[in-house]
Write a protein that binds this DNA or RNA. Structure first.
Length: 427
RNA sequence: GGCGUGGUGGCCGAGUGGUUUAAGGCAGCGGUCUUGAAAACCGCCAAGGGGGAAACUCCUUCGUGAGUUCGAAUCUCACCCACGCCGCCA
């Protein structure tokens, strides 16, 4: 949620920052917010003055009755003003609702250091690892997966539809191994607390992190109970502290969770969706950090490095991209994407997204902290990073480590979890 | 799913139409005392939103919403949530 007072104080700077998101609808939306905010205060001033009068007169009525005096004249006047208060209150509620509905659709302001432009303006920050040079034509993962018996896409389609992969045998074990490996790394070496959250959440929770109201068509919805399947563990884990006031001593709160993620991916078909590249259900280990505002810039570097550590330990080459303002997600103020090299499809695949949301999610979810005991509560900052999304991690492992005989060498870090060093084609 | 009980500030908890501008306690903050601390005692101590240059001031909030009333934590209705028992069930 945007800070409406900030908009009121410095509308030019506010609009300037939002313009960088390259969404032509935002200007009009802001105009409507400013107008509704003005009307809200206008009505508020009138109704509050009336209520102050009424409260004073009510005390007078109480006093008269206590002293057994007549109050009928005062009561008649109060009745009229009561009707007016009711009418104005109704009007005010409608304006409040309108204002909130509008404000919830305005994205976060990009940080000043975020580059201008759309996706083509994304900036490569650094690169790690060497792109493997294979002595033969690399096979894409969908063929490798079938040959090695790791997953069965046609049967997944039979069960639920295209985009619902089934992992089988060593492939299923690979999924389980990745979960254990990533969770062990983040809990033991990076200090995160492991969380196993619900996979369905209510509207308030989805609104808290910014998926609702704007992106409902991207979510699977259980209409009978008005619940939504989570598109990422970020949603339940960040919302754990919704409507809470934290002690400063608790911060940073750092949590990690392994969950399935459900995404309708409405409209995304055809290109770049083959095999495991873009699916409706996938597993992911997520990192969430709830931090003091003044620490969020440094915290973004920290959480990004934790996601990078996974790729480094898996020996997968990647690059770090800073997203341009026009390509940064709705709730984020600054995002680094980690893109892993995939030899078979011959390209970089987004395998992690690390973002600071500044106070945007904290406002929506009402997560605050007291800087010092007894002080007024302030909004925290929230961050998250995938570390990592499984399907594209699996793609990179298979495609980069394939050998001429059709086998795939497993990264050393996974060998203890897999119990074997190599995956072989089925006989 | 059925019946019952309940939902009050950061936490516990009193409160059945008007001195409740929500008692009291815990936690927290400040002070007295002390070499220091503890104890004891004294004081402060909810959140959100307006108006105002400021001092300050006003409004809202007792699970949510809608009613009754001049006036609602308190009365009515609906809903949500928690707990208990019954039913069903991994």
């Amino acid at each position: 949620m945007i800070d409406i007072r900030l908009l009121r104080q410095d509308p030019t700077a506010f609009r300037g920052a939002l313009t960088r998101r390259l969404d032509p609808a935002l200007g009009g939306l802001l105009d409507r917010v400013v107008e509704a905010d003005r009307r809200r205060r206008e009505v508020l001033v009138r109704v509050e003055a009336l209520k102050a009068e009424r409260n004073q007169a009510s005390e007078e009525v109480a006093r008269l009755k206590r002293e057994k005096q007549d109050a009928t004249g005062l009561l008649a006047r109060l009745k009229a003003s009561g009707d007016e208060v009711r009418a104005l209150d109704t009007q005010l509620r409608a304006i409040d609702e309108e204002l909130e509905g509008l404000a919830l659709r305005i994205p976060n302001l990009p940080l000043s250091q975020v580059p201008d432009g759309d996706g083509t303006g994304n900036r490569e920050i650094r690169r790690w690892g060497g792109v493997p040079q294979l002595a033969f034509a690399p096979v894409p993962h969908w063929d490798l997966g079938a040959r090695l018996g790791l997953f069965d896409l046609p049967r997944g389609t039979k069960l639920a539809g295209s985009g619902f992969p089934v992992f089988t045998g060593p492939g299923a074990r690979l999924v389980r191994s990745l979960a254990a490996f990533m969770l062990d790394l983040h809990t033991r070496e990076h200090g995160y607390t492991e969380i196993a959250p619900p996979y369905v959440v209510n509207r308030a929770t989805m609104t808290g992190t910014g998926q609702l109201p704007k992106f409902q068509e991207e979510l699977y919805h259980v209409s009978e109970d008005d619940l939504f399947l989570i598109p990422t563990a970020e949603v339940p884990v960040t919302n754990l502290r919704r409507d809470e006031i934290l002690d400063a001593a608790e911060l940073p709160v750092t949590m990690t969770a392994y969950t399935p993620c459900f995404r309708r991916e409405a409209g995304a078909h055809g290109k770049d969706t083959r095999g495991l590249i873009r699916v409706h259900q996938f597993d992911k280990v997520e990192l969430v950090r709830i931090v003091k505002p003044e620490e969020s810039a440094q915290e973004l570097e920290t959480i990004t490095s934790h996601a990078e550590a996974v790729l480094q330990k898996l020996d997968l080459p990647y690059r770090v991209m800073q997203l341009a303002a026009g390509d940064t997600g709705f709730a984020a103020a600054c995002t680094y994407d980690l893109e892993v090299w995939a030899a078979g499809v011959g390209g970089w695949l987004e395998v992690s997204s690390a973002s600071t949301f500044t106070d945007f999610q904290a406002r929506r979810a009402n997560i605050r902290y007291r800087p010092v005991p007894g002080a007024k509560p302030e909004f925290v900052h929230t961050l998250n990073a995938s570390a990592l999304a499984f399907p594209r991690t699996i793609i990179a492992i298979l495609e980069n480590n394939q050998e001429a005989d059709g086998s795939v060498r497993l990264p050393e870090a996974l060998v203890p979890y897999m119990g074997v060093e190599r995956l072989h084609p089925r006989a």
